[in-house]
């Protein structure tokens, strides 16, 4: 197991796994409309494992740059939401990051699974 993780392929897969987790965190950030606030479930979860400062800091750091860019892009495309409702521009960001996460995940699964594909079958010798 450890040997596999330390092999080049294992390292690539770990990088993919990390990327999927990172993008999934961005989904939570988008859900609140690209603000620095963390959702309650995430606050609770990250406080328990002592990571809250890091996550909140990550959220805050994204807000003035990426958050504003995404907001500007969506508004430029004519997206508007009813301020009285719970809908938000972040819904679109959520779906974007979900799409990115699915793409990364799909590619990672293909990297693992492609080994089973074959252009050649060597028959196992029966004893």
């Amino acid at each position: 197991m450890i040997k596999y993780i330390l092999s080049p392929k294992g390292i690539i897969l770990l990088a993919f796994a990390g990327a999927v987790v990172a993008v999934s965190v961005l989904m939570a950030w988008s859900e609140l409309g690209f603000t620095g606030a963390t959702p309650d479930w995430l606050t609770d979860l990250t406080s328990r494992i002592g990571l809250h400062g890091a996550i909140a800091g990550f959220f805050n750091s994204l807000t003035p740059s990426l958050g504003e860019d995404l907001t500007k892009y969506l508004q430029g495309k004519g997206v508007s939401v009813n301020p009285k409702s719970t809908a938000s521009l972040g819904d679109y960001g959520y779906i974007l990051f979900m799409g990115v996460a699915l793409t990364i995940g799909g590619i990672a699964i293909m990297i693992i699974g492609r080994e089973d594909a074959e252009e050649k079958t060597v028959l196992p010798v029966k004893k």
Partner: peptide, 20 residues
């Protein structure tokens, strides 16, 4: 299937598309 005694080391299967 193949009979038990068949020497399987002498059989190879290739799955190749037309350009290969």
């Amino acid at each position: 299937t193949l009979k038990k005694g068949t020497d399987r080391r002498r059989i190879l299967a290739l799955w190749l598309a037309k350009p290969q």
